[in-house]
Nucleic acid binder design. Structure first.
Length: 467
DNA sequence: GCTACCCGTGCC
DNA sequence: GGCACGGGTAGC
């Protein structure tokens, strides 16, 4: 059984995700609720969030202890709440996730900022990390190691949970001394050649395993059925951001501590508050834009096929797009193409030119002007969600503008719910949301517009995205 | 006694 | 054997 030499052994730790089965649903739900709560005095914020967690499906009968644990642990791990004096405030990452519903981008940013030491553990444990001199960004290290390994071996290089645990996470030669990635890879390869066994106990490997799984959610790694994680080369652009990250782009506890040789719990606690701010550093909107075409396709050919569809549209709709790479914009482009194919298939290719993107600046309450075969208008609001895992997401938000437009235009108004997951694009059409609300087919909670939850059995219908 | 990550335990 | 409930426990 492989053992890290005892003088180098330190178990790294972070809060367990208590929602791994439904991580996407829970995260978007919590981020949306936190965003909706907004800036409130700490106690009121806590109460409002607790009641939101209680309303999450399945939590009605949970103990209060469990509700409290959800609130504090999800926030600790994902940095959703920033403390500002006596107030609690939704963090940048929470607001972005609630607004864009781009889980892939969210996890890229999570992986990019995640580090040990970090404010997600209790101060006494963080103090221990600091006394050991831990200074470690796990996703950066793993991506760097796997790309070096690929380069030197000329083939795909993978790693499993146990190797990541025992050769990387729990070894101070890596987490403190930043052992060269080539040396770590050599150790892993040597262990494979000599059939060294690892402790696979669930509670031992779960922490490194969690991080690998988050990197999969970020679409940076892919997990094969053999349990090995490999670099996902459709994301090379994002991976370069990790490989070329500035060394000072991390939260440096050490330089901020008054006295490194005599760190107190007080010092650590004060810095943990600052840590949340680092974790929520403002990034360029395009810093990690999700390439939803890359996410939705399995091969380069499929990718190029979709890409060319959109590129051909670019000149026509260019001026209307806010930022060409964002998931919302790509979603809108896909829907414009879908609508043009639809109207042609229905026998009126002459109407194709009427299908247009409305520039966001006009704030008309929908994204796309489309048409029916009888030349009546069809007004389309596109709601796109991106996630690595299959997602059956029944929630979306309509702004006051959008809800008002839906009310005004009635059956002419459609929500196109586009769900992008690994290897697939799914599209659900929800006509006339206001009428559906009145008919009880969906619930709409007023909150800066309407939070919608629809019943897929009664509300709308799924169609194939036309290409 | 209260808070909030920590983590034993048992379920699926 | 992965995962989440809710009691554990350290710090105040």
């Amino acid at each position: 059984m492989y053992q890290v030499p005892s003088q180098y052994y330190l178990r790294l730790h972070h809060p367990r995700p208590r929602f791994k089965r439904e991580i996407e649903e829970v995260l978007i739900y919590i981020a949306s609720e936190i965003t909706a709560i907004g800036r409130l005095p700490k106690q009121e914020f806590k109460r409002a969030l607790n009641s939101a967690i209680r309303r999450y499906p399945g939590n009605l009968g949970s103990k209060q202890k469990t509700i409290d644990n959800w609130r504090t642990e999800i926030d600790a791990l994902f940095g959703f709440i920033v403390e500002d004096g006596d107030f609690s405030v939704p963090s940048n990452r929470a607001v972005e996730l609630a607004t864009n519903q781009d889980l892939v981008k969210f996890f890229k940013l999570f992986c990019y900022h995640f580090q040990y030491p970090g404010g997600f553990v209790k101060p006494n444990m963080n103090l221990e990390f600091l006394q050991y001199g831990v200074n470690f960004k796990p996703v950066h290290y793993i991506l760097k190691m796997l790309s070096c390994a690929e380069e030197s071996e000329g083939q795909r290089a993978g790693i499993n949970k146990a190797e990541a645990t025992h050769c990387i996470f729990n070894d101070l030669r890596v987490t403190r001394d930043n052992r060269p990635v080539q040396d770590t890879w050599s150790l892993i390869m040597q262990n494979r050649r000599t059939n060294v066994e690892y402790d696979w106990d669930g509670d031992t490997t779960r922490y490194a395993g969690d991080i690998l799984d988050y990197a999969v959610q970020a679409n940076l790694l892919v997990k094969r059925p053999n349990g090995y994680y490999y670099i996902n080369h459709v994301e090379d652009l994002a991976i370069q951001r990790f490989l070329n990250a500035e060394p000072d782009d991390h939260f440096d506890y050490y330089s901020r501590l008054p006295d490194i040789s005599n760190v107190t719990l007080e010092d650590v606690k004060a810095l943990d508050m600052e840590w949340v701010r680092y974790f929520n550093t403002e990034r360029d909107e395009s810093f990690f834009d999700t390439d939803i075409l890359a996410l939705a396709t399995d091969t380069e050919e499929q990718y190029q096929e979709l890409k060319s569809l959109i590129t051909n549209l670019d000149e026509i709709i260019e001026e209307g797009l806010e930022s060409t790479g964002s998931i919302g914009s790509v979603g809108e482009s896909l829907i414009i193409n879908h609508e043009r194919v639809r109207i042609s298939d229905e026998g009126r290719p002459d109407l194709k030119h009427l299908i247009k993107l409305i520039p966001a600046a006009y704030s008309v309450g929908y994204d796309i002007n489309s048409v029916e075969v009888d030349e009546k208008k069809r007004l389309i609001e596109v709601k796109t969600t991106a996630s690595s895992k299959p997602l059956d997401f029944r929630r979306f938000h309509l702004t006051p503008n959008e809800w008002a437009a839906a009310d005004t235009f009635g059956s002419r108004y459609y929500v196109y719910r586009l769900m992008v997951t690994k290897g697939s694009l799914r599209l659900r059409l929800i006509p006339d949301p206001v009428a559906q609300y009145k008919a009880g087919n969906l619930t709409a909670t007023p909150r800066n517009g309407m939070d919608i939850i629809f019943d897929p059995d009664k509300c709308g219908y799924e169609v194939e995205l036309l290409r």
